[in-house]
């Protein structure tokens, strides 16, 4: 870091302060629609931050445009509400310039997968240590209800009056295909799971990608209710837990087994299969991660929720610092006078 940056950020006493969730709430009035799923995500974020053992001033939230992108205003930390789709690129520059910061990107299915799709996949392949939270509500909310890149085929919206003819992205599969190191899915209406996944994402070194199924109660109400509501959730969601078999169902009586490379549902109560036949989740196995991500949108299978993959590899920011440190230690810190006079020079008397 430049000397002036060091001066600015290290003069303070960094003795660990004990924070409460409210310490991460800014003085701004929260302006999402009443009943929006975003409130839960904000609350869970404010709840986990005190456990992260990081001074508040070392945390930055960067967002693009959309309902979700209002998020940074409500966090008492450094925040940057930028332009549509570019939060990932801005966060990349911020993290590279300031590896000492914990950098979050808050985005949505439009901001992160449509206009910002390109920057998203490149952030992931580079593995810059940034945590991305993608609020997926399968609709454009801020522009009042057009189909998004995660809306289902046939979706009737203001801009698709007789049904959308766009096929949706599968965000988890897209992330895995982009070599994202940490890929997860969680639910706005499951605060505990949401907190767990956000914490894991924050602790993970490398790009973390968290897709949150988030209800837009104004323009796409109930899009995920079969996965989030009490009476339907158990039979429609399978939670991925590292080292554990894929069991689901109200009575924990169903499971996922691999038939060749294809996951299939088996009953644990008909005497044909036991838990021992089931697929055991392994966050470190990228092949399994692809198989599970591809269960998404398969109507015959429950929706996978949890951490698909968490495989650490060297980060771009780490490698960048390494190259600079290695060059400085090999050639010494640069001197302008030497630099100016390098190459072919000649004297005029």
């Amino acid at each position: 870091m430049g000397k002036l940056v060091d001066d600015a950020v290290t003069h303070a006493d960094h003795a660990q302060v004990k924070y409460a969730a409210k310490d991460f709430a800014s003085d701004q009035e929260v302006r999402w629609c009443p009943g929006c799923g975003d409130y839960s995500i904000l609350a869970q974020m404010q709840r986990i931050m005190p456990e992260m053992n990081i001074p508040r001033e070392k945390v930055a939230f960067v967002s693009g445009i959309g309902c979700s992108s209002r998020f940074p205003y409500y966090m008492n930390a450094y925040g940057f509400h930028s332009i549509h789709g570019r939060a990932t690129a801005i966060a990349s520059g911020l993290k590279l310039a300031r590896p000492d910061l914990m950098v979050w990107v808050i985005t949505g299915d439009g901001d992160g997968l449509s206009i910002g799709g390109n920057h998203m996949i490149h952030l992931m392949r580079r593995n810059i240590d940034v945590n991305v939270v993608m609020f997926n509500n399968q609709i454009y909310g801020l522009t009042k209800g057009q189909y998004s890149p995660t809306s289902e085929f046939g979706k009737v919206t203001k801009s698709s009056p007789i049904g959308s003819i766009d096929y949706p992205f599968n965000p988890a599969a897209l992330a895995l295909g982009s070599s994202c190191s940490f890929v997860a899915r969680t639910l706005d209406r499951d605060p505990k799971h949401l907190q767990y996944v956000l914490k894991r994402a924050a602790e993970f070194k490398g790009t973390s990608y968290v897709e949150v199924y988030q209800n837009c109660n104004v323009f796409n109400d109930g899009a995920f209710f079969q996965f989030t509501e009490k009476d339907s959730k158990d039979d429609n969601v399978v939670f991925l837990e590292h080292g554990k078999p894929l069991v689901f169902g109200k009575n924990k009586d169903k499971g996922i087994k691999l038939d060749g490379f294809s996951p299939v549902v088996v009953s644990l109560s008909d005497g044909m299969h036991s838990v021992n036949d089931l697929l055991i989740h392994n966050e470190k196995d990228s092949t399994l991660a692809f198989i599970m991500a591809n269960m998404t949108y398969n109507a015959a299978l429950p929706r996978p929720v949890g951490i698909f993959q968490a495989i650490e590899r060297p980060t771009y920011d780490g490698e960048m610092s390494k190259q600079i440190d290695a060059t400085v230690s090999k050639r010494g810190r640069g001197s302008l006078d030497k630099l100016f006079a390098s190459g072919d020079t000649w004297m005029i008397q």
Partner: peptide
């Protein structure tokens, strides 16, 4: 200590620079 970031496109190039400017 110069950090060069070959971005994925022109937009990311300037956006990353804006992020770095925010960072000092």
């Amino acid at each position: 200590g110069v950090k060069t970031f070959q971005a994925e496109d022109e937009i990311a190039a300037i956006a990353s620079a804006i992020g770095a400017a925010f960072g000092g």
